[in-house]
């Protein structure tokens, strides 16, 4: 028996909004420690790693490890049926063909249950090593979303150049170019808006706007985003999910011919 309950369905709604443009389907690995998802987009250029710890749920029970292949589009449709104040419970048997989503209104007068068929999926699990990054930038997630949106109008790629002084985002296209520079915050008292850079070595890499635009769909999950960058390895774009876990997006850099 697997059962996981969240008082706020809005967290799960936001998680689905943050992955539905990248993933068609994904395997949800459920164990005692929580729920983990690792999935690549169709082109295998990006990877989503989602972790929801069991202690972050209001109720969590997982008698044996489960791998549940789920259609992200169907799951997203189901979660749209939950009210923002509803409690959500995921429930499955030990060898499940289906998973149930149960929504309960805060006054307990409405109970809705949606059952979704699981998908048999070939599991392709990649080993992501612990990596020490040359630059780690912490900044407002809203500011990052805005920069991605603004610069995407000018080119297909955004170049991120990070030095000790700050971080510079550049897009160059046929119609012109755009760049935004953010200086490291001197007084980081306003923590959420601060730009904090931990740098060992300056880096400069380019990434596809199309994927970055998908990643910033996670903005409602967290007021801060963390970008980890090293030359010649994938960018990591990380959003915390309250006290329950985090979502990390990995994106392969563009390589200059």
């Amino acid at each position: 028996m697997f059962e996981a309950r969240l008082i706020q369905s809005s967290i799960l709604k936001k998680v689905l909004d943050a992955v539905k443009d990248l993933l068609n389907e994904a395997t949800f690995e459920c164990s005692d420690s929580g729920i983990q998802v690792q999935a690549m987009d169709n082109a295998h250029v990006s990877l989503v790693a989602l972790n929801l710890r069991s202690d972050g749920f209001d109720k969590y029970r997982c008698d044996r490890n489960l791998s549940m292949g789920m259609s992200i589009a169907t799951m997203s449709k189901i979660l749209k049926c939950a009210g923002p104040e509803d409690t959500v419970t995921l429930r499955a048997a030990d060898n499940p063909d289906t998973v149930a989503f149960i929504f309960e209104s805060s006054n307990k007068e409405k109970l809705a249950e949606y059952e979704m068929k699981l998908i048999n999926m070939d599991q392709e699990h990649l080993g992501i090593p612990e990596t020490f990054y040359s630059c780690v930038v912490k900044m407002s997630s809203h500011e990052f979303a805005r920069i991605v949106r603004d610069l995407s109008q000018f080119g297909e790629n955004i170049t991120i150049a990070c030095t000790k002084e700050g971080v510079k985002f550049t897009a160059i296209g046929d119609s012109g170019s755009a760049n935004v520079k953010l200086a490291q915050t001197a007084d980081a008292s306003e923590e959420n808006d601060a730009v904090i850079i931990e740098m060992q070595e300056s880096v400069k890499l380019s990434f596809s706007c199309r994927y970055l635009t998908c990643f910033v769909k996670a903005t409602p999950l967290c007021s801060q985003v963390q970008l980890s960058i090293s030359n010649d390895v994938p960018l990591v774009c990380e959003y915390k999910i309250g006290d329950i876990g985090q979502i990390r997006y990995y994106l392969a850099p563009k390589i200059d011919d």
Binding site: L126, G127, P129, N157, P234, I255
Partner: peptide, 14 residues
């Protein structure tokens, strides 16, 4: 920019 590796190039299956 013409080249872009894919995730398994960076993170091989264990």
């Amino acid at each position: 920019f013409v080249l872009q590796k894919v995730m398994p190039d960076y993170f091989p299956e264990p």
